[in-house]
Amino acid sequence: MAELIIREAIRKGLQEALETDDRVFLMGEDIGVYQGSYAVTRGFFEEFGSERIRDCPIAESVIIGAATGAAMAGMRPIVEMMTINFMLLGIDQVVNHAAKMSYMSNGQIKVPLVIRAVTGGGGRLAATHSQNFEGWYASVPGLKVCVPSDPYDALGLLRTAIADPNPVIFAEHGLLYGKRGEVPDGHYTVPMGQAAVRREGTDITLAAYGRMVYTSLEAADRLAERGVEAEVIDLRTLQPLDTDTIVQSVEKTNRVVIVEENWRTGGFSAEIASTVHEAAFDYLDGPVGRVSGHDVPAPYNANLEDLQIPDADRIIAEIEKLYSL
């Protein structure tokens, strides 16, 4: 058992994939000589060389398109998109090509591609560098979406993503890279579509992913002080989505709030809320709540950015409003 931060856990997953599978190679901007914009690929260029650690020009559509082609031809490319914001320049290659090859070829063509991208706000990086688009990708048939929140899941899900025969969007929250946790030395994997209960409780269910798991846990701690026990569920993947774990929790708590950093309008929390309504209607004591980012671009001002992103206060206020707890 080793204690790693998320950055190290992802690095470990990439390293072992490069060491054990000749088909694996990395593509991205500044992943080689520069050692990675978020230092995830530090040392790789020296160790594995320019053929397998491919520094690419600033052309996201070309990077994803070329990686898709390589995956179709039997390689196992892992792309680093630096951030999910810049990935917008390559979204056509993701949605119109990588995601559809299997279906349009009647299953003859596989695209075993992993696209890693930093997601999320809170870093004082302003409106164009602070967005959460993983929910968009989760709505596209043919794509899978991982949203790990701790080192154990980051490594376990990355292993699963690399082994998957489909394109996987691996969204890494920029403020969680330093998050520390225990990671077994031996091989293990984390399956997609299996949420984790991070805190057990009987009074209300909070379902979240990524950084919002920690915000939800903070809210749960404060609720506990007044005798309200919240159960906190970490979704871990958005596609596939583990509805069962949420519903099972709601059968016990009869109340649920979905917490998401993304904008409220059209956010993935709306999809989850609707699904839970349908599946757990008879168990609910009130409407499924949602706490999301306010529908404005991320402000540069620190105080305003903190207001834009959900915090424990807003989660508690939503619970009080909906359920009078």
Partner: peptide, 12 residues
């Protein structure tokens, strides 16, 4: 001065 909280919604 720091912008007031309601400035969050200005100019969208």
């Amino acid at each position: 001065p720091e912008p007031p909280p309601e400035a969050l919604f200005d100019h969208v």
